[in-house]
């Protein structure tokens, strides 16, 4: 199969998944019984202007599929409608909040990669020994700390008791923002470090037991070389796959951390919009997260043949 055909196939699958997801996001509103106008205007005064505005924005007088097409056309042009609480375009509201969340996710992602890989590699190279057990126990305990628990413990210890870091807000300017985001990104990273650490360890351990590793050793390659060129190289596939799945979780979990630390990011916007019944914003953020997840995983999918040449041939990956 040519690379082109394969990539085209993946792209098709990506678009199909996104299409189905958009159906789910859009038509979920129709699951709620009752009048769509009053659903969208829950908790607000159904003034004639408001009703007219919502009706016009959603084309509520049109048949559902027409509503969907209009909405989708807008979304594809970056128009997610208007926020009910801010009386602003949804895209603007989200745009304002995006930098904090992106920064948070990037910082947490870096920690996850560094700490998770290190823990997994160290454990696997000492498998069965004390260090391995210590890492495993550590991971099991860390893995049980939900990000909101991590957040409040970090606030209590490092912000309130020690006063090293701020406990609230996202700061001004790049460096200040990074400083404000240290504790939040740790809180966000904890659970994901565990997942990456565990999959790294098991993937490495599996490869260490493979015969080709013994062959490489028998040929007089240094242990470090064997680990790098044969064990770690071959473990990348599963690690990357798991990391891809984590992306969506990371974006959602960031809303918890943002709420705990009072950061003005996408996550708090999502929670706030749910709280204040601002459905257009909820819809837009959900779609954004889902799209990020699907795109990242599609990229990993496309990269697979470079990671495992057998995938290109369509041979059963073993």
């Amino acid at each position: 199969m040519t690379t082109f055909r394969r990539v085209a196939g993946k792209l098709g699958a990506l678009l199909l998944t996104l299409f189905l997801a958009s159906l789910l996001v859009f038509f979920s509103r129709f699951l709620v019984p009752g009048d769509p106008v009053s659903f969208l205007l829950r908790g607000r005064k159904p003034s004639p202007e408001a009703v007219a505005q919502v009706t016009a924005q959603y084309g509520l007088d049109l048949p559902p599929w027409q509503q969907y097409l209009n909405w989708l056309t807008g979304v594809l042009q970056g128009d997610f409608g208007r926020s009910l609480q801010y009386r602003q375009d949804v895209s603007e509201v989200i745009g304002d909040r995006l930098p904090v969340t992106l920064m948070l996710v990037v910082m947490a992602g870096t920690m996850i990669a560094v700490v998770g890989l290190t823990a997994g590699i160290v454990a696997s190279l000492n498998r069965g020994k004390v260090l391995d057990r210590a890492v495993l126990i550590g991971l099991t305990v860390l893995g049980a700390i939900p990000s909101f628990v991590g957040s409040i413990v970090l606030i209590a210890v490092f912000a309130v008791q020690l006063g090293w870091f701020p406990s609230f807000g996202s700061g001004e300017g790049f460096l200040d923002m990074a400083y404000h985001l240290v504790l939040p990104s740790i809180a966000l990273a904890i659970v994901f470090v565990v997942l990456v650490g565990k999959v790294t360890r098991s993937s490495m351990v599996e490869q260490l037991g493979r015969e080709h590793v013994e062959v490489a050793t028998s040929r007089g390659l240094k242990r470090g070389t064997v680990i790098r060129r044969h064990v770690f190289r071959n473990s990348i596939g599963p690690i990357l796959t798991v990391s891809g799945v984590l992306v969506a979780g990371l974006l959602v979990a960031s809303s918890i951390v943002e709420a705990a630390f009072g950061l003005a990011g996408i996550g708090t916007l999502l929670v706030q919009s749910v709280d204040r019944l601002d459905f257009p914003v909820v819809q837009a953020i959900v779609l954004l997260i889902v799209t990020a997840f699907v795109v990242v995983n599609a990229i990993i999918d496309v990269l697979e043949p470079w990671i495992d040449p057998r995938a290109a041939a369509g041979a059963g990956a073993r």
Partner: peptide, 24 residues
Amino acid sequence: LLALRRTRASMIFQDPRAGINPMR
């Protein structure tokens, strides 16, 4: 050990499918 594996003796294993890194 490295020296003796590099110069003195080599080994051929049972299953070449498992014995050669499939990703290289």
